[in-house]
Design a protein around this nucleic acid. Structure first.
Lengths: 155, 155
DNA sequence: TCCATCGAGTTGATGTATCAACTTCAGAGT
DNA sequence: ACTCTGAAGTTGATACATCAACTCGATGGA
């Protein structure tokens, strides 16, 4: 409802932001892939598991944490399993744990420095401390709104 | 080189921004898909063509404008061609024009309102005018840097 | 007890993105 | 005139994302 068209300023803001977002994503992806053979999805999963107690987490918790849907996580874990980065373990009667392997942990550790350097080069080091805070605050606003009204279940 | 690790604040800023960016992208994608059967890639191509004189543009110019590599554009145009949204036309001896079809234009026009509304709901309307400007300015800084040093040809 | 439903997980199909290898033609330099 | 190089495009292989449909066991009324 409300009003329709975007103003010129709003349109430019959106297009700039959207293109930045796309390019940043692909660039980070490329660095990770070239530097360690990981996709950013792989990296996310490994990072989350490495921070969890015993390097293990329920599949659906992983999904929550990453903001993914279940089937994406499933396929992801399957692919990572084939490469020896994680294993799946039955957990209770229904429920599956994803567990990081030694190889997964080693791969992650090897990937971190290059990734961090890229994040600095493409993001953190370009901004002043104030800008970084501003940006993060606004990103947080947008993210909260996204998480608040999911598309699926909205009573 | 410079320094290595990210501070806690930097790390949180990055993760928030990155997750926001991913979620925003998928949400916009879903709205477009549900509302009009277009992907955001489709939408980008149609929007660019519709703004070009005669609704036509060289394939590589499209690639430049969208920030894509040639093979991505090629596959995209092939898929869109199969659906009747665009056609390809030989242009000179080497070189191909992508041309929007009547159906493509109609589909775009039908898609715009819902898309605009979603962009408002998830982005523009959440921010004050100042915040929108700040965000766009910072996004521009990051985007300029991304476009300035391409990964392929650096010197 | 029965059956209805729901959450977690699985599967397959389809669309999309990325990479590397290849074609082809134009213009530059010799 | 001849080759070299590079730009624009094409192709196929592979990985990734998304959706719909399904399984299976738990929970909870009736």
């Amino acid at each position: 409802m409300v009003q329709q068209r975007l103003t010129e300023r709003e349109l430019r803001a959106w297009r700039t932001s959207f293109q930045m977002l796309e390019l940043l994503r692909t660039r980070v992806e490329q660095q990770l892939q070239a530097g360690s053979g990981l996709s950013s999805a792989d990296y996310t999963v490994l990072a989350l598991l490495s921070e969890a107690p015993d390097g293990r987490m329920r599949a659906y918790e992983l999904g929550q944490a990453a903001g993914w849907e279940k089937s994406r996580m499933h396929h992801q874990l399957t692919r990572m399993g084939k490469r020896g980065l994680v294993t799946r373990e039955q957990c209770g009667s229904r429920g599956v744990d994803a567990v990081i392997t030694a190889e997964g942990l080693a791969t992650l550790k090897a990937a971190v420095p290059g990734h961090v350097q890229e994040v600095r080069k493409l993001f953190v080091d370009l901004l002043t401390a104030e800008e970084l805070d501003q940006f993060a605050r606004i990103a947080g606003t947008i993210l909260d709104n996204l998480q608040a009204n999911q598309p699926a279940g909205s009573p």
